[in-house]
Design a protein around this nucleic acid. Structure first.
Length: 429
RNA sequence: GCCGUUGUAGCUUAGCUGGUAGAGCACUCGGCUGUUAACCGAGCGGUCGUCGGUCCGAAUCCGACCAACGGCGCCA
């Protein structure tokens, strides 16, 4: 058996090829039947006729419907009339399943496709999404391995909140209750005392009742934590990682990007370094652009969109006022009202894809901040222990891989970037 | 949590100020020896989201409910 892509070349012409896959299109014209066969690698036109097959064999093939599965043997030749430039004249075949009519046809509603996502995965469009996603996950991992990081595996069932209790998913646990992880950050911090540079890719769960194009209740969270690195050093690692991931997709998946209509030239220009803008300066710029924002306001979706259209690269926003971020961020020693943190906003209106920064590593300050946030320090005993024994400066970040994928592919909704989206109103298929 | 939109055949939909449901695709059958989302002809397919109300009469008007979608806030 061969992959379709591997036989679409001049060396194969005149040879007998053995293929298997699914019927992508079928149409008859008189005594000829054209079957477009697809497999994971591509598609090719098959020709069935009474010339090279028995009459009843040709008839059986002509009755196949879309997405039937089959095996095909025949001689391949060049033919400009066929979709991919080659055609296989069938000499024998095997049908695995001649199915009933496939539910998905040419008229497609958004809701219907979501209900039939398990079948829509077979489409050319979604196959391209899946291939690009695969590259993104591999490239992210490769980048950190190449830079001396260790991959670690934090728990998913946890008993401490990272981002505030109201968005926790509660799960029964032998008469007790646990939560699904919102972020692996605190656990990642435990690993740096032995491994120094660590990363993970794990699902995170947020019970936020969000109904937006950029939120999922279950999403793939890529996180890293690094010993001895400050806020600026962390941003340097992140921008090199983003460049690495984007250039990997451009190199491996140019065909898929074009199928999705993505402007590949735009992606080729995504090179580090990325601009850094302090929050205070951004507020001044926003006012110059006519936005109704003042110091102390958080960036809403509209503001992020307005801001990021002014850039053709991702942009870091740093030094937020401490009132806008959660307790573990380290205050700037030069200006304690601001914190040493950064968000990375994707361009073209996509907005936040990374949140990161320097962590508080002083025990007393961390305790004080937790008390300010009404957190029970006893629950976080293990997190506080990290500041008791050999505490060090360190930084980290969290990246929404589905958001990154959404931006790279220029999709309208994050649901189109993940095979089986979980949102407030969808747990099937 | 808040605001909005939509629900008619397997899919995409038309249906005006109420008068008894129409099309395209898919599928089945027939035609065509070069099709490209083929084309041509025929057939199959609907308790108009659910429940209730108004009316001689409701897909259409009113109410409640359900579901999905879109947006805000929150975040990655």
């Amino acid at each position: 058996m061969q992959n379709i892509k591997d036989v679409l070349n001049l060396e194969s012409v005149g040879k007998t090829v053995h293929l298997r896959g699914w019927v992508y299109r079928i149409r008859t014209s008189g005594k000829l039947t054209f079957i477009i066969l697809r497999d994971s690698s591509g598609m090719v036109q098959l020709l069935s006729s009474a010339r090279s097959l028995k009459e009843d064999e040709h008839k059986e093939l002509s009755s196949l419907v879309i997405e039937s599965s089959m095996e095909a043997t025949g001689v391949i030749r060049e033919d400009k009339r066929a979709v991919t430039g080659y055609e296989v004249e069938l000499s024998s075949y095997k049908i695995y399943q001649r199915n009933d009519n496939f539910p998905i046809s040419r008229d497609l509603g958004e809701e219907f496709l979501l209900d039939n996502r398990h079948l829509w995965l077979r489409s050319r469009e979604f196959s391209a999404v899946l291939k690009i996603r695969s590259t993104i996950f591999k490239a992210f991992t490769d980048f950190y391995y190449e830079n001396g990081f260790y991959q670690v595996q934090p728990p998913i069932m946890v008993s401490t909140a990272t981002e505030g209790g109201s968005t926790l998913f509660k799960v029964p646990f032998f008469g007790d209750e646990v939560s699904l992880s919102q972020s692996s950050q605190f656990y990642l911090e435990t690993f740096i005392f032995s491994l120094e540079k660590v990363f993970t890719i794990a699902p995170s769960f947020r019970a936020e009742k969000s109904r937006t194009r950029r939120h999922l209740t279950e999403y793939w969270h890529a996180e890293a934590e690094v010993a001895w690195v400050d806020n600026e050093g962390m941003m340097e690692i992140e921008e090199r990682m983003i460049e690495y991931v984007v250039s990997s997709v451009v190199r491996e998946n140019e065909e898929e990007l074009r199928l999705l209509g993505r402007d590949v030239e735009f992606l080729k220009n995504i090179k580090a370094p990325f601009p850094r803008i302090r929050y205070g300066r951004l507020m001044e710029m926003a006012q110059e652009w006519g936005l109704n924002l003042k110091y102390g306001d958080d960036l809403g979706a509209d503001e992020e969109r307005e801001i990021t259209v002014h850039f053709d690269k991702p942009v870091f926003v740093t030094h937020y006022p401490s009132s806008l971020k959660t307790f573990y961020h380290r205050p700037d020693p030069d200006n304690p009202d601001e914190i040493l943190c950064h968000d990375l906003l994707a361009p073209e209106g996509y907005g936040e894809i990374i949140g990161g920064g320097e962590r508080i590593w002083d025990l007393d300050l961390l305790k004080k901040r937790m008390v300010d946030y009404n957190l029970n320090t006893e629950d976080y005993y293990w997190y506080l222990d990290l500041r008791k024994y050999g505490s060090i400066p360190h930084s980290g970040f969290g990246l929404g891989l589905d958001r990154l994928a959404m931006w790279i592919m220029h999709l309208d909704n994050i649901r189109e970037a993940i095979p089986f989206p979980r949102t407030i109103r969808r747990t099937k298929p």
